[in-house]
Design a binder for these strands. Structure first.
Lengths: 211, 211, 211, 211
DNA sequence: AATGAATGAGCCTTCATTCAT
DNA sequence: GATGAATGAAGGCTCATTCAT
């Protein structure tokens, strides 16, 4: 657990091997992400990953047990990284508008900074949800929602928030920004960077849940 | 030529063959949707489809050219069907709140009525976007956005709407409902039907864009 | 038989449909040759031919019975055309050197004028030889050899020719020119046109069989 | 690394499996040649090869990457073997007539000794020439021609040879034998063995290039 | 920990051919 | 004569996974 350092983005996207980092586990994950960035989910095959990181088939299986294991490991690594970032920003916020802003902008900034990982998170979710670590994923999601709701609860009681069922809260706050980011990530062309609409998206989220 | 009638949902999901309808093309598409409903995108293999609809491999290729061709055809059929539904409801709306309501609830109702098709639409989009009919998809999306914006434009000028860049409009209006529906479709368990939050979601969308 | 006019070379090799000539049979053969010219023997599939000439699958089968039927028909058409050309030039020759020259140069000139057909003749031979018209092919070859030997016979008796077994005669006379032409046809690059070596090849053939 | 031993001809042409030799790579190549001998180029399918040598599909792809890879590997193995044989005989020759004799007879003897490989060499060439190892093939051909010309050069300067452009030299010397051998290999019936015309063919080649 | 040969099910696609209209 | 939908065998190839070294 101590290892698992920050994952440098799949920068050298030239499709060729990257130099090993001394940490096989991490090399493999980096290679998997690079493969994904280049050809989508279906390009992440053991063979492709192997070619990229120079590990052997056996080594990959030694570390992750299965192809799905690789994907899940990468998924949870990225998810944790992202969660922590947003969570810490939320914790610093004093009032609701600031909290909503932290959530929306924190997410948005992370997506812009790490488009490959954001894309991966979107696409790998269903794979992980259908695998043996599905419960872990569900638990994480629950925890996250709880944390969010816990943060909001005092403010709702104070009457700052509209009386919104907690199940929809996340969708109201994050829906718009996710929707825009998803579209931006999908379309290689055309749409302006989410950066351009940081304020608009944050404001709208606040208005949607304000009393 | 006036054919391509409404696609009855993949109801008989027993995994066995369905009775042919006389229209091979439609049989194949129905079978493809049924396969998808049963096992997700990756279950849509030519072999699976073939078994379901009783067509021969060659026949499928005769009509659709490739596996991707089948998926794209189904995708556009469903997309058109859904678009028309929402569009017609929007057209009937007199003021902005009603319009937003029509968009959100129209979408929500359709998703609840046709969960399989909604799921398919979500998952097949990236496939189609990466294939030879990508332009067609882009064109459709553009058209749809334009129609939406055209409807809103007079009201914005009237000052009923906040001054929101048109690129984000769709995300603000549809983001929350899509977000919730997507989560509901993904989680086979737990989440309440979107029906329960019709009003909440519609109201929030309206608040997000109101002046 | 009266029809079967001269086959215009697959000139419009742009891969698209050619305008019909009113003679379906000929259209199909032209299309087949064009397909071959573009992608080699294996590109001559019924489907490819169909796309090129605008005929229907059924029509092709109506005229030729099978794929092999198309190839054989084209083969024999071209073979006859070529044979007649050389044969008529041979008939005009008065002495042996002139005869050898007529054979070598006649062949060489035809190859240079119709590279696609020459290539086809080389590659289709084995296909035809393995099909139901194999006997016809063998008969044609025998006839041709006999004609050649018959022309030479008087001169051999006159002592102008070396005493060469008749089975090798054709190889001695035509081997070098065929060898060079075959290599030239195969290599899209590099080798000079056979035209450049007309005299050299004719002379060598004469020397090889001269007394 | 010193492996890749001589390839024993596809003798046990009974169409059933042969006993493995411990060298998978070689087993596969042997099986491929046997398939070819039995049914021509189109009988060399992965499935056929697999049945013959007992390897799995995956194993074949592991070693050769593609069907074409198998063919190319076999082609180059045989080509090298044949080249070396003829080359070594040429090296031993003292004067031009002997050299020409070595070339013609060396080739002829090899063909008679290994008809399957000779046939394969003829038929596989175009396949290899159209594949990713085309350059390698061209390089090999160039090298071979250069070696031949290098051997002849001193004699030409000495005036023993006619003044023949070097590009046609190979065709003049080898054309007749190749022509006869090709016909012999093609016709399952009728033609006498090339052995019968060893001297005739060698002599003719010499006469064709003599001063 | 690592290696890489081997496995074999399964996938997409092509193709020659038939036949009812 | 012509059409094109339908057929189904066959082919090349990918891929996750195992295992002896």
């Amino acid at each position: 657990m101590a290892s698992r350092k920050s994952i440098t983005d799949a920068t050298a996207a030239s499709g060729t091997a990257e130099q090993p980092s001394g940490d096989r586990r991490q090399d493999i994950l980096n290679a998997a992400l690079a493969c994904f960035a280049e050809g989508g989910m279906e390009a992440v095959s053991i063979e492709m990953v192997r070619q990229r990181c120079g590990a052997s088939v056996g080594s990959i299986y030694h570390h992750f047990g299965s192809k799905e294991g690789v994907i899940a490991a990468l998924f949870f690594d990225i998810l944790a990284e992202q969660s922590q970032g947003v969570q810490s920003q939320l914790a610093k916020s004093k009032d609701v508008p600031a909290g909503v802003k932290a959530l929306v902008m924190g997410y948005l900034d992370w997506v812009v900074a790490h488009p490959d990982r954001a894309r991966f998170l979107f696409q790998a979710r269903s794979v992980v949800a259908g695998g043996p670590r599905a419960q872990e994923l569900a638990a994480h999601a629950r925890e996250r929602n709880l944390a969010l709701l816990a943060w909001f609860e005092p403010h709702r009681r104070a009457g700052v928030l509209a009386d919104i069922p907690c199940e929809v809260m996340p969708s109201l706050v994050m829906g718009p920004v996710q929707s825009y980011c998803r579209a931006w990530l999908a379309g290689s062309t055309g749409m302006p960077s989410p950066k351009k609409y940081r304020d608009t998206l944050a404001l709208a989220a606040w208005k949607a849940v304000a009393a």
